[in-house]
């Protein structure tokens, strides 16, 4: 190995911990910026869906536990609805922004990541798998989502949130038609 490379390698070795995402909250995109991106003509006024009765039970089935709050805020316009949802990967919530258009996912972004592992779910190679995904029987996605080694819990959490957003979008559309 050429000796001239030694200082460079030493520097790389010393800076390695700073190249890895440290524990703590990392904001990749603020929820406001996500909404502005999805609704470039102006973010609509928010509305809320209350998790009561049947909705509450179905949400519990999808997540495997109760959602931490009794109501969820969403933004909708021209058949498109945007959801900012939280789900715990291992210990801390992952905040995800999901845009649903006519029952299919149009955009999914990991907005805020707080865990020390599993941050790979923010990459497009992962989130692109949800593009145009929709729900089928049993509130499951119509496709298989590939796991990321070492990020299994984060993958599960984001997949659950995708199912949750699709279910809630379906519910508000059915509710509006009624």
């Amino acid at each position: 190995m050429p000796r001239s490379l030694l200082p460079l390698l030493t520097l790389l070795f010393l800076s390695w911990p700073t190249l890895l995402p440290a524990g703590g909250e990392t904001v990749y995109q603020t929820p406001e910026a996500f909404l502005e991106q999805q609704f470039p003509d102006g973010v609509p006024e928010p509305d809320v869906v209350w998790l009561r009765g049947e909705v509450r039970e179905t949400v519990k089935d999808i997540l495997g536990h109760r959602y931490p709050s009794l109501r969820i805020r969403y933004w909708h316009k021209d058949g498109r609805s945007a959801w900012i949802l939280d789900e715990i990967g291992k210990d801390l919530p992952i905040t995800t922004g999901i845009l649903v258009n006519a029952g299919r996912i149009e955009a999914l972004r990991v907005l805020i990541f707080r865990e020390s592992r599993g941050w790979e779910v923010r990459h497009e190679f992962f989130t692109d798998q949800f593009d145009q995904a929709r729900l089928n029987e049993g509130h499951k996605l119509d496709r298989h989502i590939d796991n990321i080694s070492g990020a299994t819990l984060s993958v599960r959490a984001v997949t659950k949130l995708a199912r949750l957003a699709l279910y809630l979008d379906q519910w508000i559309r059915d509710d509006t038609q009624d």
Partner: peptide, 11 residues
């Protein structure tokens, strides 16, 4: 005591 919603600056 059940949480209905957590409101922050963005809300």
């Amino acid at each position: 005591g059940e949480l209905v919603e957590r409101l922050g600056g963005s809300e």
